[in-house]
Simulated assay, not measured.
Amino acid sequence: MDIQRYYQQRQEQAEKAPKYRELCTQCIQPVFSCYCKHIQKFDSNIQFVVLIHPIEVRRRIATGRMAHLCLENSHLIMGQDYSREVTVNRLLQDPDNHCVILYPGKQSKNLSPMSEAERSSLFPQNKKLTVFVIDGTWATARRTIRQSQNLNKLPRICFSPERPSSFRVRKQPNAACYSTIEAIHQSIELIGTSQGFNVSSRGHDKLLHVFDKMVELQLEFIRISESKPNALRYRRRGPRSA
């Protein structure tokens, strides 16, 4: 085979190869669905630590990452068992931090029915409130709590959802199950004032702004997909009959 024919075949193979979508390096979305232009950073005066499960990392619509991109002084740490995770243990052992975990259950203090004074009394005023949030499915969140001995010992807080989740592009166990970014927003709503954040400024609504833009864009993609002939749809309905 001569060299010209060799390069010609290489070119033909390259043209036939699958074309992978270019991803935004920040939000890990395909460039055409990047939501970074809607991100508005702000400081909630609370240090949020988003513990993202490896499964969520592979899902590009991961609202924990979205929240991290909006929140100044936040952390995004991937894992499942955080018992020996260096950054997590450093934050836990820092005497200037008061660490809690946002996790529902019988052991959790429900912030919703409390008065402002009662919420303030939960957290020492001379320390930085550090809230750990698990970003994953309910099953993986339970596994993380069970395996991570350092997180298992933390005081737990939760809230009662005020309205159904707006995460209409992913299936939730029920309408009261909030996405990670919605849960962080509601937490700031309830305890932001106790940490010196001006809740009435609605600065934390920047979380919902980018979240809503992402949901609207994904719903538009679904509408476009549903309007196409079956042969042109990206998703297959199921195996073809023999």
Score class of each variant (00 low, 15 high):
R170C: 09
R170E: 10
K171E: 15
K171M: 13
K171P: 01
K171N: 11
Q172K: 14
P173D: 12
P173K: 10
P173C: 10
N174M: 09
A176S: 15
Y178I: 01
Y178K: 12
S179P: 04
S179H: 02
T180Y: 07
T180N: 07
T180V: 08
I181K: 02
I181R: 01
I181H: 02
A183I: 01
A183C: 06
H185M: 08
H185P: 00
Q186M: 09
Q186S: 11
Q186R: 14
Q186K: 12
I188V: 14
E189P: 00
L190Y: 04
I191H: 00
G192K: 00
G192C: 08
G192M: 03
T193R: 11
T193H: 07
T193F: 01
S194D: 06
S194T: 12
S194L: 03
Q195L: 05
Q195G: 03
Q195Y: 08
F197T: 04
N198P: 01
N198R: 12
V199R: 05
V199F: 05
S200K: 13
S200G: 01
S201M: 02
H204V: 07
H204F: 04
D205S: 08
K206Y: 10
K206R: 15
L207Y: 02
L208C: 02
H209Q: 12
H209M: 10
V210C: 11
F211C: 02
D212R: 14
D212L: 08
K213S: 12
M214T: 13
M214F: 08
V215C: 08
L217P: 00
L217E: 11
E220S: 11
E220W: 09
F221M: 13
R223G: 04
R223L: 08
I224Y: 09
